[in-house]
Amino acid sequence: MGKQDYWVEISFRGMPCGAGFLLTRRHVLTAAHCLRRRGVKQSDGVVVSRDSGQSVEGTVLEVDPGRDVALIRVNAKLGWAVQPVVTDRGEKGDEWMSPYRPEPADPELKGWVLTNATGFESSGGATIEALELQVRQMLGDYSGYSGSPVQLERHGGPGLGAPVAVIGMLIEQDLHRVRRAEATNVLFAITVAEAIGAFEDLQLPAQFSRLGPPPVAETVSEAAGRHFAGARASIAEIKAMVDEGLVSDMELTEQTKALLRMAGQRTIDWAGGHESAR
């Protein structure tokens, strides 16, 4: 458990609904079916909590049952610092993990991205852009993980408090074709781009608006510009936290370094991928 978690649990009238995560310090993204199951509707009040017990009240702004996403507005200032989030597009072969556990004894899910984002018919009835994820832990049933953010796994990275790259949100499991009550070890996550596309009026920082597919003929310098713009937007968010007294200048410096390192690495990875594709 980091001191700057960005993922949360949402509850309604004292009953847990499921996971979600802070897109910004004012907006939480979650799965619509987590709310529906508790009878939560648009404009209803909910409670947004972090694992340590701190919480803040929120209001359901919009629900898109087809895409199976819902947006919650945080009604007051968060009383805790939020780990900066950089959104990214997951690609086949990426290692992923999800930090949310429905219960303390439940495992933290990890695995590999099986396919690039592709069309997927959700139980909500819409064809959405989703990632197919292989999960290492064979649980047979992944109930309780909906709304969990899916982030790229980092090995030996910058450490606690450093930005995380979120690629999607867990919504569904694949069921065994014969034993229908049992899940395979494949999960589906709606991509961040698809999820936030459901909320046209939502004003988000620059890193979210740049989530569309990169231009086919993009140059290295254009790719660098895209990655560093995302980093600058995240740095601006952290500076706002400094102003609120939630983050120290030293943490700002460390996170700025980490964000710039990550933007540089993503540019190098992008260039390497395009080089090998030629």
Binding site: P16, C17, G18, A31, H33, C34, R37, D68, P102, S122, S123, G124, Y142, S143, G144, Y145, S146, G147, L170, I171, E172, Q173, D174, L175, R180, A181, A183, L187
Partner: peptide, 10 residues
Amino acid sequence: EPGGGRQISR
């Protein structure tokens, strides 16, 4: 549930 158990809420 819609989807016959595909959705993974609590």
